[in-house]
Computed example of a mutant assay.
Amino acid sequence: MEYTVPRVTITDEAKEIIDQLRERHGDLMFHQSGGCCDGSSPMCFEDGDFRLGRSDVKLGEIYDCPFYMAKDQFEYWKHMQLTLDVKDGRGASFSLEIPTGKRFVIKSRLFSEEELQVLQPVESVDA
């Protein structure tokens, strides 16, 4: 079976911020824990700077960056396509985009019944 529908996508505006961050930090990764406050926003780290564990899954790659989510949070989001975007404002987190005056946000939409049949599978993190 060929999987054609990604679980995570990205806007052009978010790509611009990632380009800036890559110049300074190198390879990047994203994680969304679903916790309160900052944990509910997607967090950008240098690849490998966030310790992943068995409680995480990889949803896919966006703009050559792996995107991970806590398994329990994924249970709430598994029927939705997530889109990484940015907006003006400074979050209060350790995410790398904070000094740019922008912050990453997630927009979501429900998958159609047809899309659910051809979704990109998630990968378990073995740590």
Rank of each mutant, 00 (worst) to 15 (best):
L52K: 02
E16N: 05
F50M: 14
H79V: 07
H79M: 06
I17P: 02
Q73V: 10
G34K: 11
Q73R: 14
D27Q: 11
D47M: 12
G53R: 00
M69I: 01
G35S: 12
C44Y: 02
R54I: 09
F50H: 11
G26L: 07
D49P: 09
Y63P: 07
L52G: 03
D72C: 03
L21C: 07
K71V: 06
G60D: 08
D47V: 02
C36G: 12
P6D: 05
D12W: 04
D38Q: 09
R24T: 15
H79C: 02
E75Y: 00
K78C: 07
S55P: 00
L59R: 01
D49Q: 14
W77K: 03
G26E: 13
M80I: 00
M29R: 14
A70C: 12
M43A: 15
E16I: 08
S40W: 15
R22S: 10
I62W: 04
A70I: 06
D19P: 04
R24I: 11
W77Q: 09
Q73D: 03
A70E: 11
P6A: 07
R51D: 12
M43Y: 07
V57H: 04
V8R: 03
Y76D: 15
T83K: 13
F67Q: 01
I17C: 05
W77N: 05
F50I: 06
C36Y: 15
M69S: 00
D47H: 13
V5W: 01
L59K: 01
V86D: 03
A70V: 11
R51H: 13
C37H: 12
E23M: 10
D88Y: 14
C36I: 11
T83H: 12
D19H: 09
E13P: 00
F45K: 12
F67D: 04
S33E: 05
D27N: 14
I10E: 04
F30I: 06
Q20S: 06
D12S: 12
T11A: 11
I17E: 06
D56P: 09
C36L: 12
K71H: 03
L21A: 03
I62L: 02
T9I: 14
A70G: 04
D88N: 13
Q32Y: 01
T83I: 10
I10S: 08
G53P: 06
L52V: 00
K78D: 06
S40A: 15
D88Q: 09
R51W: 09
Q81E: 14
T9A: 09
D64K: 10
